Amino acid sequence: MDAATWSPIHSREWYAARDAVAGLRDVLIAAGLDSEFPYLRADLNAFGMGLIELGRISPHTAERLAELIRTGLNCAQEHENSSGPGGRTP
């Protein structure tokens, strides 16, 4: 495909951005936050780099999102601490 027929929707970067949005969307739905991100979308910038736009969110939604991230980080840390050398449970 040459530059004259290039379409951003057929680029690897577009599909990566779209897949990332789908994964994030699924997590937001599971957390009950799907209606809090009405502007969530995949996009490409002028250089063809994939981007994810979250849009504006309320302070309450930001607090809920921060708490979800904190909980995930704490779970990961607890899992790492409970694993012995090489990631094996002692």
Rank of each mutant, 00 (worst) to 15 (best):
M1F: 05
D2L: 07
A3H: 15
A4L: 08
A4M: 04
T5P: 02
S7A: 08
S7W: 07
S7H: 09
S7V: 11
P8D: 09
H10W: 05
H10T: 02
S11N: 10
R12H: 12
R12L: 11
R12K: 14
W14G: 01
W14C: 01
W14F: 04
R18H: 10
A20L: 08
A20G: 03
A22E: 13
A22R: 15
A22V: 07
G23H: 08
R25G: 08
R25N: 08
R25Q: 12
D26P: 00
L28K: 00
L28Q: 00
I29M: 06
A30Y: 02
A31H: 07
A31W: 10
G32T: 03
L33R: 06
L33C: 09
L33W: 05
D34Y: 08
S35C: 06
S35I: 10
S35K: 14
E36P: 04
E36L: 05
F37V: 02
F37R: 01
F37N: 01
F37Y: 04
F37H: 02
P38F: 04
P38Y: 05
Y39P: 00
A42I: 01
A42F: 02
A42E: 04
L44W: 05
L44P: 05
N45M: 10
N45P: 09
A46L: 13
F47N: 07
F47R: 12
F47I: 01
G48P: 09
G48V: 12
G48I: 13
L51Q: 13
I52L: 05
I52D: 01
L54N: 01
L54M: 10
R56E: 02
S58Q: 01
S58V: 00
S58I: 01
P59H: 11
P59K: 09
P59G: 11
P59A: 11
P59T: 08
H60A: 13
T61M: 02
T61N: 01
A62P: 04
E63P: 04
E63V: 14
R64P: 06
R64W: 07
R64Q: 14
R64T: 09
L65H: 00
L65S: 01
L65R: 00
A66N: 11
A66I: 08
A66F: 08
E67V: 12
E67M: 13
E67Q: 13
E67Y: 06
E67K: 13
E67G: 10
E67F: 11
L68W: 07
I69N: 04
I69L: 10
I69R: 10
R70D: 00
T71S: 14
G72Y: 03
G72A: 14
L73G: 05
L73R: 14
L73D: 12
N74E: 11
N74C: 06
N74M: 11
C75E: 14
C75G: 06
A76W: 13
Q77I: 12
Q77L: 14
E78P: 02
E78G: 09
E80F: 15
N81Y: 15
S82I: 09
S83W: 09
G84A: 07
P85G: 04
P85I: 14
P85M: 09
G86H: 13
G86E: 07
G86L: 13
G86V: 12
G86F: 12
G87C: 09
G87K: 06
G87T: 14
G87R: 07
R88N: 08
T89N: 03
